[in-house]
Simulated scan of single mutants.
Amino acid sequence: MASVKDVARLAGVSVATVSRVLNDSAPVTERTRERVLAAVAELGYRPNAVARSLRTDATGTIGLVIGDILNPFFTELARAAEDEARQRGYSVVIGNADERADLQDHYVRTLLERRVDGLLLCPTAEITSLVRDLVDDGLPLVFLDRTLPGLDVPTVRADGTAAIGALVAHLKGLGHRRVAFISGPALLSTGRERTDAFMVEMARHGLAVRPEYLESGDFQAASGRAATARLLDLPEPPEAIFAGDNLMALGALDEIRARGLAIPGDVALASYDDVPWFTHLDPPITAIAQPVRELGRRAVAALADRIAGGPVEPVELRARLVVRRSCGEPEREEGSGR
């Protein structure tokens, strides 16, 4: 079957221009319209379900599909996106994929039926046919926090490599040599990126990564607790545990406390993703903080540019390390000098 990309290639125009012609959503020259329609006829192109759902009139609404609404990171991200969208005159309709590809596609279809002007998507690991159709049919689309290989979609994300390096240096400076890592799912870009950065930074700082100190979870508290239990049951347990997100850190904290162990006296604990309640624990938790509100703001700005038909470049912000007492040092913010 011919795709909208095939039509665009034959007509010598962009995918967005083909969508404008087929949906009569923006003015194009008569000559361009004729070329597009001729290519449609020659290829026998028929718009699929996504194309049929593209709006013909702006609705002032954008869709946001997030990974897990119970994760404080995504909750804050949605709030930031909603605040920025309101400033720009948009309403936001939110769907919670619960890290499931089928639920993600369900909410995407629902949002298309509501004629959203564009879509912000924190994609699951799987490239579904519906997501591929979104790209092929030129719907204004921006990925948020995560990437999908092989899809040409602008992404707004934070790079945590430098912050992970700062954490490893911090742990080494405190005398910790046996450092364990609980990663997120390898199928998710965020899971892979954090694992790769941890391995690189451990090697760069001259610290060995013992295979038994590498655990994997699913960005949920239960998996963090189970992984921590396995780590603490080792004949030589780690001196420090780095959890790949805030919920797995919570699970790790539960297991450490259930065993009557002290943080950081018996085991140090650090988390990727900072959340407000980390500061209220005793001891407060050292964490890598992503610029969540800026991520939400920049994602909406990028989507607004796509809706307007303008070019959009990927956005990469930087996470930062926030040092507190859970690894053995008096509370201070990295780089603050306090």
Results as ranks from 00 to 15, higher is better:
Ala78Leu: 00
Asp152Ala: 15
Gly63Ile: 05
Leu37Lys: 13
Ala227Phe: 02
Ala2Thr: 10
Glu113Gly: 15
Asn48Cys: 01
Ser189Cys: 11
Arg88Cys: 02
Ser91Ala: 09
Thr17Ser: 14
Arg230Asn: 11
Arg20Gly: 02
Glu316Gly: 02
Ala101Val: 14
Asn71Lys: 10
Leu121Ile: 11
Pro140Ala: 01
Leu167Gln: 00
Ala51Gln: 13
Thr147Glu: 15
Cys122Lys: 00
Gly118Val: 04
Arg86Lys: 10
Arg33Gly: 12
Arg115Ile: 07
Leu303Gly: 03
Ala38Trp: 06
Asp133Tyr: 05
Phe242Asn: 00
Leu207Gln: 05
Ala97Phe: 03
Ser216Gln: 15
Arg100Glu: 14
Ser19Asp: 12
Glu84Cys: 07
Glu212Thr: 10
Ala308Lys: 00
His176Met: 11
Ala240Leu: 04
Arg338Pro: 11
Thr29Lys: 12
Arg132Leu: 15
Ile241Gln: 12
Ala203Ile: 03
Val21Glu: 00
Arg318Val: 07
Leu295His: 03
Ser336Pro: 04
Pro237Met: 01
Thr59Trp: 00
Leu231Cys: 07
Asp159Gln: 02
Gly224Arg: 02
Glu294Arg: 03
Ile285Arg: 00
Ala249Leu: 08
Val135Gln: 15
Leu77Cys: 02
Asp57Met: 09
Leu121Met: 12
Arg297Glu: 08
Ala16Met: 08
Glu334Thr: 08
Ala240Arg: 09
Ala162Thr: 09
Asp145Ala: 13
Glu42Pro: 07
Gly265Phe: 04
Gly150Tyr: 06
Ala221Gln: 13
Leu77Trp: 03
Arg225Asn: 11
Met202His: 01
Ala287Cys: 11
Leu295Gly: 04
Arg306Ala: 15
Ile94Leu: 09
Asn23Asp: 05
Leu261Tyr: 02
Ala186Trp: 05
Leu269Val: 00
Met248Asp: 12
Glu215Pro: 05
Glu294Cys: 00
Thr147His: 10
Met248Phe: 09
Leu10Pro: 06
Leu144Lys: 09
Ser189Phe: 12
Phe219Cys: 03
Pro47Glu: 09
Pro284Asp: 05
His280Leu: 11
Phe143Lys: 04
Ser271Cys: 01
Gly335Glu: 04
Ala180Ile: 00
Asn23Ala: 12
Ala162Met: 03
Thr32Glu: 07
Val131Tyr: 10
Ala39Cys: 05
Ala258Val: 14
Met1Glu: 12
Ala38Arg: 14
Gly95Trp: 08
Val135Ser: 04
Ser326Trp: 06
Arg178Trp: 14
Glu84Pro: 04
Arg320Leu: 01
Ser91Lys: 03
Ala208Val: 15
Ala203Thr: 14
Arg31Thr: 15
Leu261Thr: 00
Asn23Phe: 05
Thr32Met: 12
Ser216Lys: 06
Pro185Met: 02
Ala226Asp: 14
Gln290Trp: 03
Ala287Trp: 05
Val36Tyr: 03
Asp245Gln: 04
Met248Tyr: 10
Leu253Ser: 04
Glu334Ala: 14
Arg115Glu: 12
Leu188Asp: 10
Val13Leu: 06
Arg192Thr: 06
Glu84Met: 05
Arg259Leu: 08
